[in-house]
Design a protein around this nucleic acid. Structure first.
Lengths: 361, 361
DNA sequence: TCCAACGATGCATAGCTATGCACGGCCCAA
DNA sequence: TTGGGCCGTGCATAGCTATGCATCGTTGGA
């Protein structure tokens, strides 16, 4: 028993690491040094055993693994982060999870990042003004990249993030600069497609329920919708503002249909708005969908395919968006700025019951 | 310019930290040493400036902050973790986010943990057999606590987690041992309450759609339901197995109502199952809810209060559950085992349209 | 005027792992 | 027998911050 150097040698007297230091510091985990002492080898060999290096003999490996087992040793990643300047941590910033679309995307992200050997640090931001509060934390944990799944990321917010000099991938937002790139679904084209579908179904007057005024995705969907309506010679849509939530769609539809112009086709900036609007039409205004009003949304959340809803909508190919994001993150190594153009993935129209009627017949 | 010790002195020649070392190592962030060099003070004073210690003069503080600004310096938390054995990281393990209840809870957690100065490491586990894969990661990142928001955590899984000697709080699961404690909603009592409600509404024959067979929450809800039915002299409920998803409720209701016994009151282990069942009844079997069948669920997800659904259900007081969990985590310091009994928070019955009919009239 | 007290500063070190380098032993070929 | 690889091992150090301790200069009180 050679316990001369340190007064307290962990594992020499007792195999349990739960003990107080003479100095008063509390030692929670066994270290590679402790394992080395118990196994009777050098710390180097412990490290090499766990890093899978070949430079360790079978007998040593066995001794090390036995000692590690006894001490419940698991190598810490923390020093490695210090040495390599890579934490393998990716931060995902989310605004709200009330929209199932974002839950789905978040789940997909987790699975993919974990498979790629990264861990996910999750941060919540009530509004993008609060971004400044979390910036220091992001930097302090030395995250390798930041994925912003905020519905809205203002240019100012993007600039704040860029100051960190950490690669940022913004989801569904058009901003991009040296450090921020974006991955979005095809919004403009979807707006055009739905206009064509409504017209093909015989609609004459049109409505649009938007997301928050600052949401670029909502704006693009509306622009495509309006452009195509104009091209086809239809009048401009009546517009009401929602907030991407069920209640917003409900209220917006109520006010829109109590006004002078009652559209017979209604495009909503996302599915939650659309479902809220449908409920307002059916349950409060006693209008039939699709017989009186055609309705379409965007996102293809699970509820859109419920039998009682059957909402026509767009599937944004979330898997492809996540794929693109991951590959950008993985290629953005060594702290160099991103050299990526904004990525746009297609959104596929899924027609269901809420547009399944020819209004002319 | 005294740059004798190190060949490459960051900030002495150039204020930008983006440069390659002669040694080849890439330096991504400025360190406190770099700041100290630029500010012309010792590293200690830089550290003290940022830790808010009072032992630093106004002039020094100013010089330090200026230099830090120029170098984009943000103190790293990594060395602190090494010194204190506390990472301020809390891992949240989730199984699936398809159930909006878990999204809501997760969001609540994030907000509360961030407010308490912790960061959230999010992990996804397809099934609790895969727990073993993430255990090493959890240990390697030295998380302070683990919150399991898995719908199901088997005793074996709990034992695996306990081996880590990290406090584990299991959500909605009854297991608990020296390292694992649980926070659940009142399930048994809810089952009893809904039996009383059904009987008060004049129901005669009863049904239950369960979650996965291994879910303790589902089992408890059923037990309370069956016990109270027995006490009130009603026959045992017809039971079908679902999987906590909409599709499972839909299929279970179809099969149950194509069988010999058609219940006129149906309790489902969660809201998604209930909504699936309602859609099957209304859209496929052309039965009316609540006129022909009363239906109730559990969780009070947002869709439960949609006008088109109006589902009678139980609100599990997620806020209280999160509160309890957080306080357990915060009190579980210094690697000591938990000394907490399982916590049970109440669930409040919310009656809506799907039970709003007296079947006798 | 002298000493105590205090405020500010710098030095040195802990904390843990990965890895370059040197060294010792061994085997094999010449 | 000898020398050149080669395998395995240990030593020493980088990486960054917090903090106990010693030092130094200053101020205030006796």
């Amino acid at each position: 028993m050679t316990a001369e150097k340190k007064a307290a040698t962990l594992g020499a007297a007792d195999a349990s690491p739960d003990q107080d230091w003479p100095g008063g510091t509390f030692k929670k985990y066994a270290s590679s040094v402790d394992v080395a002492r118990v196994a009777g080898v050098s710390q180097s060999q412990v490290s090499r055993t766990f890093s899978g290096s070949s430079k360790v003999s079978e007998s040593t490996r066995k001794k090390v693994l036995e000692a590690a087992e006894r001490l419940d040793y698991r190598p810490s990643l923390i020093p490695r982060i210090m040495l390599t300047h890579k934490s393998n941590l990716v931060a995902i910033v989310v605004g709200g999870l009330y929209n199932p679309f974002y839950s789905t995307v978040l789940e997909e992200f987790m699975i993919r990042f974990q498979a790629a050997g990264h861990q996910v640090l999750l941060l919540h931001i009530p509004n993008d003004h609060a971004l400044d509060d979390v910036i220091p934390k992001l930097a302090s944990y030395r995250v390798d990249a930041i994925v912003s799944a905020l519905a809205i990321l203002s240019p100012a917010g993007a600039a704040t993030l860029a100051k960190l000099k950490i690669p940022v991938i913004a989801f569904n937002t058009a901003v991009n600069n040296e450090w921020v790139t974006s991955v979005s679904s095809e919004n403009f084209e979807a707006g055009r497609q739905i206009a064509d579908l409504f017209i093909a179904r015989g609609a004459r007057s049109f409505g649009f329920i938007s997301g928050p005024s600052t949401s670029p995705a909502s704006a693009r969907r509306r622009e495509g919708y309006e452009e195509r309506l104009r091209e086809r010679g239809a009048g401009p849509p009546t517009v009401a503002r929602g907030d991407y939530r069920y209640e917003g769609g409900f209220a917006a539809a109520l006010s829109m249909f109590s006004g002078p112009s009652r559209p017979d086709a209604l495009f909503c900036a996302n599915d939650l708005l659309a479902i809220g609007a449908i409920d307002a039409l059916r349950e409060r205004l006693v209008l039939r969908v699709p017989d009186d009003v055609l309705v379409a949304g965007f996102d293809d959340i699970p509820a859109a395919s419920w039998a009682s809803v059957g909402l026509t909508t767009f599937t944004p190919d979330a898997a492809a968006m996540v794929d693109e994001t991951i590959s950008i993150v993985l290629s953005a190594a060594n702290g160099k700025p991103l050299a990526t153009k904004p990525v746009v993935v297609s959104a596929k129209l899924i027609e269901r019951g809420t547009t399944n009627r020819d209004l002319r017949s």
